[in-house]
Design a protein around this nucleic acid. Sequence first.
DNA 1: TAAGGTCCCGGAAGCGTTTACGTCGGGTAT
DNA 2: ATACCCGACGTAAACGCTTCCGGGACCTTA
Lengths: 347, 347
Amino acid sequence: MDINEVARLGGVSVATVSRALNGRPEVSPATRERIRSLAAELGYTPNASARALASRRSGMVGLLWDTDYRSGGRQHPFLQEVLVGLKEALNEHGQGLILLPIVPEDDAGGYVRLARQYTLDGVVLMGVDEHTPSVAALLATDLPCVALDLAVDGPRSASVTSDNRGGARAAVRHLVELGHRRIATVTGPTDLKPAAERLAGYCREVARHRLPCPEAYVVAGDFFADSGAAAMRRLLALPEPPTAVFVAGDAMAIAAVQAAQEDGRSVPADVAVVGFDDIDAAGLLRPGLTTVAQDYRRFGSTAVALLAELAAAPPDAAPRTVTLPTALVVRASSGASTVDTHEEVPR
Amino acid sequence: MDINEVARLGGVSVATVSRALNGRPEVSPATRERIRSLAAELGYTPNASARALASRRSGMVGLLWDTDYRSGGRQHPFLQEVLVGLKEALNEHGQGLILLPIVPEDDAGGYVRLARQYTLDGVVLMGVDEHTPSVAALLATDLPCVALDLAVDGPRSASVTSDNRGGARAAVRHLVELGHRRIATVTGPTDLKPAAERLAGYCREVARHRLPCPEAYVVAGDFFADSGAAAMRRLLALPEPPTAVFVAGDAMAIAAVQAAQEDGRSVPADVAVVGFDDIDAAGLLRPGLTTVAQDYRRFGSTAVALLAELAAAPPDAAPRTVTLPTALVVRASSGASTVDTHEEVPR
DNA sequence: TAAGGTCCCGGAAGCGTTTACGTCGGGTAT
DNA sequence: ATACCCGACGTAAACGCTTCCGGGACCTTA
């Protein structure tokens, strides 16, 4: 069942079938509909390879996602949500998603070749180091690239990140509204942009409310659980310990809560805790962790929109970066009154 | 930079280039190496679409993964790990992975068409209902299909599942070895195969050790957290409450631990708990949850191996299903002596 | 009425590969 | 020496589409 068959049965040329199916204006509406319904009836689907070969556009976007990227303990824990967003948005555009393999370290041209091999319409990067030669080479291309949770630039690239700063501010504001004044923070590795932004948001909000903020109230973590526990112990040992802590990552926050409890303090009564990320465990714990959630699904859909935009725009246009809003998820650990039910996290 | 260019520069015909690059036996080893190094030097990569079109094999396998599949509260929480396994194995085979969109409910031929459209080598199914018309239609095809965590059959299909039964037995055995005799269980929805298997494993092991097992010791859950909490409360209210509970899913197990604690019991001193799945939260909690881990990465690689096997085998061969071993992860909730450190779960 | 335009549509040339099939040497068996 | 085979390679026909180019029918406008 190829296009010739449809053409024959429809009594038209293959050119007309192609045009009808692709919604080209050179066919009369009448024949267009006739051919379309005929094709549907016959269960005809154009062959993607042939189409790509002839049109030189594959309708595929590549996902570049490094499994092993852990610099600073970061790995993308929300792959699933991002994928959902990507998939849904791509479907609407009639595009497909292909997972790119990771090329070896020493193969600088690897991704560029892959992109050519599949004649990709664009690629989405996540959890990669933009300074890796192979990635840098790809970004230098005029192929549309959008990076998630990472700021990049190139002739045709854009970024989408969460409003880490705003999220942090919301977290602190929440604590202030609950009456706290001695609010400390545990940071991530501040050489990473998101961690730095979260710290900046904390500082800004603390300053805005003229809260006391001795140096000891800012303790460095690394996004891993143990550093959160250590940080909390340090804070509680202070002569004037904070009554609330904004922890820049949930894994650390969870460990911090436990450290406080092991120290005999009650959360949130003695010390309130707010995290960042809203990982699954945050809703499973008792007390539930109040935290700042990112809209990972929207990461995906935004990426697709940007890809389309980049494809249309002239190269070297001003690099766009869209910042997605975050949402404060209030649970028990911050001390706000809530009914703390288990959320639906199956298995 | 196409194949003609390489042929011209190499002083051979395109046929020879093609054969050399594909490792066909009709070229002398000498020219094969010469062409290969020339191609590498030129940075030539064959166009995937053209190759697929000409050879009628795309070298792509499709991943069918339903975002919204939640029947019985099941969703695949380990997508990431499975993807890693798939990707790595596929790379070794020189194949690519494409994420299939979900077709509308009423489009029974949807997946079959997609497979034809992309001329897929095979498809991997996860988190889908094999009775959905569109999925059933795909399975009925002679296209190689392998289902993960799901038993299917069709002219050319296979399944890979974890050894749920064995895992459950190991969990119970672990508790027995710790001296428990009154061991209860909380099940998943037993119309789902994995849940049924876990229950069967529990029963088998309980019988083997001639443990008391009143009916009340088997309480039904649904894999969601709340059902775990309810089940634990029920068990603790028994005239002769169990001293240990095997909970068939971690989300339920975590909630069960909390329910016990809220009831004034200590875990594991008063009641030991073992879960199943080893979700991230299991290692983040205090006490850490002893649980049965599945090797999801291996799911992926096994799937790829099966796909290759199916492609080679004659259709309607006996449907294979490989069962992957599970591993007991001992943490504090079961009462075994361990150092309970936080695991590395970043952010 | 002739010239020009517009609207539809068909013919056919690609797109970059793979893969029959043919060919041409040089070995081996007869 | 003839016949034969086999290994190595070239020629060219697909593979299933898109799209450029052009042409006929019909309508405007002068």
